[in-house]
Design a binder for these strands. Sequence first.
DNA 1: ATTAATTTGTACGTATGTATG
DNA 2: TCATACATACGTACAAATTAA
Lengths: 136, 136
Amino acid sequence: MSIDRRSHTPVYRQLANLIREGIYSGQYAAGAPLPSELALSQEYGVGRDAVRQALALLRTEGLVSTERGERSRVRPAPERVPVELPPGGRAIARMPADPERAEHGLDEGVPVIELHHLDGAIDVHPADRTELIRPT
Amino acid sequence: MSIDRRSHTPVYRQLANLIREGIYSGQYAAGAPLPSELALSQEYGVGRDAVRQALALLRTEGLVSTERGERSRVRPAPERVPVELPPGGRAIARMPADPERAEHGLDEGVPVIELHHLDGAIDVHPADRTELIRPT
DNA sequence: ATTAATTTGTACGTATGTATG
DNA sequence: TCATACATACGTACAAATTAA
């Protein structure tokens, strides 16, 4: 698979699609590093900007995490902790603002779940580690 | 408020913070257009790249939406539809991959809620229009 | 209805800073 | 110390969509 310059789909989205498929197919295993930006740039014959846009897109999807100085890695799915939605409780999911994300130490592309209790109390849970449940 | 070039906080994050506060404070009302990228670039004395990175960050937070040819707008919060988490049901929240996002017509920065029923069926709901509830 | 101006999107380049190995 | 790698920030140019004239 390669990049089609004649396609209407932007280069960086085509590249993101290729990498995403590589993740889904297991070509890139969970926790494994992707090729460096330079390597991807050369391998697919695109600018570094296109590579960075593709990786940024995958980060917002929670598929990839990047740390400065290291190659991007396939973000492993953490264990989910069951959290009970109590009677009369309500829950919503939203993306955290950047300062809130830093405060909770969340990866990019990870939503938060707000759990609203009957008494008005609100808990905030990282969505990647949370599974809302209701007992039978 | 303005940009501090000596700060260790990147220019684009400082700018994103300023715009975000402008949204929270009501200076930019829901649905209202933000200044154009050029206007922001000139007003704060930063490059267009920094402006675009700031807006991209706010989009991933679901605070702003942008369409080509139009100025970015403060994303209005849609009505939430109550969805019952049934007995024995489970729910998780995650970001949709780009093709899935396009398929469902979701804005950037909007998670999806996966509702897993006891019989194995899975519903997918847009998180910005969904409120999970459990009756008392 | 056409044209022009505005605005965002994509893609490239260069340079420098900062963190890792 | 040195090389590698990602982050930031500026620039240019052109494409594509909308808005205004």
